[in-house]
Amino acid sequence: MTKNKLAQPFLKWAGGKRQLLPEIRKYIPKKINTYYEPFLGAGAVLFDIQPKKAVINDINTELINTYIAIRDHVDELINDLKKHKNEKEYFYAIRDLDRKEEFKKLSLVERASRIIYLNKTCFNGLFRVNSQGHFNVPFGKYKNPQIVNEIVLRAVHNYLNSNDITILNVDFEKAVENAKKGDFIYFDPPYDPVSDTSSFTGYSLYGFDKDDQIRLRDLFVELDKRGCKVLLSNSATDFIKDLYKDFHIEVVSANRNINANASRRGKIDEVLVMNYEPDR
């Protein structure tokens, strides 16, 4: 099956991998049995590789609901998206739904439609929730955001339905419990903060701290022992480089556009860690 170039991320996401794809591509193994991506986010790597068999996962329930809605109810979702308005008062009414009792009554499609709408119209296209799990990004004041990208939604729908793709909403360890020799796992966790003020783990209620990074490293080691090929991206901090010192590390530069502070956008060093020699 040839890749459908129209199947691509339908959301903007903090830490999204579009900028890093040319680097990541260099290190994707030629032969993959099952592809695993436990920190899916907007799915840039998934849609770039388009594996025929994959297990994709994210801890963010609203995000995973959106993938399921696109897979199972794409026509209804496109219809529902058409009702949204790029207006400030309307934006805040939709944004604040998750603070109200009626939020629980929204259908899967309505919740997915809300997430896509907020993502397209909020400031900087961020997805961020506060400690109560409420979406808290302000209105973006864009002239003409593309709320309904029907072509991309249908292409993603077709990809998810014409391949063997399992969608999960569990902890990253559980997401790879069935991974075995010949499988390929790509880990794109919330990054280790470069400074105390730069931590951005606000896209799910479950922040990601140093203990989680260590737990992830231990899982990386275990998957290595199982005979899986594992690739991980993270920030190039001393902590991360030390955690993975026994593995092959490539330092790469990536542009970071999603940051409220413009001075913090631009090139930052990231690492790609792998437990195999890259196919040259």
Rank of each mutant, 00 (worst) to 15 (best):
P51K: 10
P51L: 10
P51F: 08
K52L: 14
K52P: 00
K52G: 12
K53S: 15
D58W: 07
D58Y: 09
D58T: 02
D58P: 04
I59S: 15
I59R: 13
N60M: 12
E62G: 05
L63E: 09
I64N: 15
N65Q: 15
N65V: 09
T66C: 13
Y67I: 04
Y67G: 07
I70M: 14
I70S: 11
I70H: 12
I70E: 12
I70D: 11
R71K: 15
D72S: 10
D72A: 04
H73M: 06
H73L: 02
V74Q: 05
V74E: 08
D75G: 07
L77V: 09
L77K: 01
N79K: 13
L81V: 10
K82S: 12
K82R: 13
K83R: 13
K83F: 09
N86Y: 00
K88W: 05
K88Q: 14
K88M: 12
E89G: 07
E89M: 12
E89N: 14
Y90C: 06
Y90T: 06
A93I: 07
A93N: 14
I94E: 02
I94P: 00
R95T: 03
R95Y: 05
D96F: 03
D98Q: 03
D98H: 02
D98V: 03
D98C: 04
D98A: 07
D98F: 01
D98P: 00
R99H: 12
K100M: 13
K100P: 00
E101N: 06
E102I: 12
F103M: 02
L106M: 11
S107A: 08
S107T: 15
V109I: 14
R111A: 10
A112G: 04
S113C: 09
I115C: 15
I116V: 06
I116L: 07
I116C: 06
Y117L: 05
Y117G: 02
K120P: 02
T121A: 12
C122K: 03
N124M: 05
N124C: 01
G125N: 03
L126F: 10
F127T: 11
R128P: 03
R128L: 05
V129W: 02
V129M: 09
V129D: 10
N130I: 08
S131I: 05
Q132S: 14
Q132I: 00
Q132Y: 11
G133R: 06
H134A: 12
H134Q: 11
F135I: 04
N136I: 01
V137R: 00
P138L: 05
F139D: 01
F139C: 00
K141W: 03
Y142L: 11
Y142T: 03
Y142R: 09
K143M: 09
K143L: 13
K143R: 13
N144D: 15
N144K: 15
Q146H: 14
I147W: 01
I147H: 06
V148T: 09
V148R: 01
N149P: 09
E150F: 11
I151H: 12
L153D: 08
L153P: 02
R154Q: 13
R154M: 13
V156W: 14
H157N: 15
Y159P: 01
Y159C: 03
L160S: 05
T166W: 07
L168D: 00
N169I: 13
V170D: 11
D171E: 15
F172L: 06
A175C: 08
V176S: 13
N178I: 15
A179D: 02
A179G: 02
K181Q: 15
F184V: 10
Y186V: 04
F187M: 08
F187K: 01
D188G: 01
